[in-house]
Design a binder for these strands. Structure first.
Lengths: 156, 156
DNA sequence: CTAATTTGGTTTCTTAACGCAACCTTATTT
DNA sequence: AAATAAGGTTGCGTTAAGAAACCAAATTAG
């Protein structure tokens, strides 16, 4: 029966994917981060069907990733702007971009050159660090057996 | 007509989402990071339909995120293990988990307690940094106007 | 002032994907 | 010898995605 939803999952990754884990949502957020605000601009830049775009924008607004604001004086023009929650997806998007640049480079493209406004330098690679500041991989972490023993380690 | 694919997109985020951007793939990778390797374990832990799991595992293997290895002596048991490419999704998963923990906390759940094996301490939040090491947000970055001017800032 | 265009959608229809359940084959266990 | 487990495959019904057409309100062009 259709797509399974994870609103009630006890895994925060599943809950996150429930909000931005479909094909279009993260791309919409990405373009919003690059300055796109208008329906038609999302439509043209993404090549997304308009009904799907309607649905995704509405869902992102429902989930408070975007907010829909009327622009102009009589309310027939709208902008979709990132909320704080939406802007907080920045590390996710950057991590995904880095992964894509590293493992699936386009033949012609050298990756998007994002730079820091303050320094003018490219941004650093996103990494996971321990409290000492050392970068760590998935092999360096473990899940302490603390709460709710006897269960699976991390269900769905 | 079905789902649009982005294999040829000049955006690495779109290409990345093409490989792990569906509902299940990242959850499979997440569970693989937590140690799951067997078909039946993915099936039970995720509650995913078996045909969908087959498809996703095959696609993740095709995309070299997982590798399928025979275990046992006569090749009727398999394990799906993360490749280096798959393990490199660690920052993506962690960033997504942090976002979910922050903005969609489960009422009962205090977030998964991931710890560094070396220090025993919880891992640090994933952030984007500039070259000076300062954390930056989406508002601190810009795209230098270098190649291909006159175009949109970043198509699809 | 009227016609065309833009914006932000909604509707219809077709096709593809998801989910369930049943089935299947090859081991292994009882 | 029968039952169970692993790792799927096959049908089938439901749902979601995509294209294209249509639409109303507002703006711009002529």
């Amino acid at each position: 029966m259709a797509r399974k939803r994870f609103d009630d999952s006890n895994c925060s990754v599943a809950r996150a994917l429930n909000q931005v884990g479909d094909w279009w949502s993260l791309l919409i957020v990405l373009h919003a981060m690059h300055g796109t605000r208008r329906f038609v601009d999302f439509h043209q830049e993404l090549g997304i069907a308009k009904n799907i775009l309607c649905d995704r924008l509405a869902r992102l607004v429902d989930n408070e990733v975007l907010k829909k604001v009327e622009v102009g004086e009589h309310g027939s023009r709208f902008e979709y702007r990132l909320t704080g929650k939406g802007r907080d997806l920045f590390p996710v998007v950057i991590a995904l971009r880095q992964w894509g640049d590293k493992w699936n480079p386009a033949p012609d493209d050298a990756g998007l050159n994002l730079r820091d406004r303050a320094t003018g330098q490219p941004i650093q690679a996103v990494q996971v660090h321990n409290t000492k500041g050392d970068p760590i991989t998935v092999r360096d972490v473990f899940i302490p057996i603390a709460s709710a023993p006897g269960r699976k380690k991390d269900s769905a």
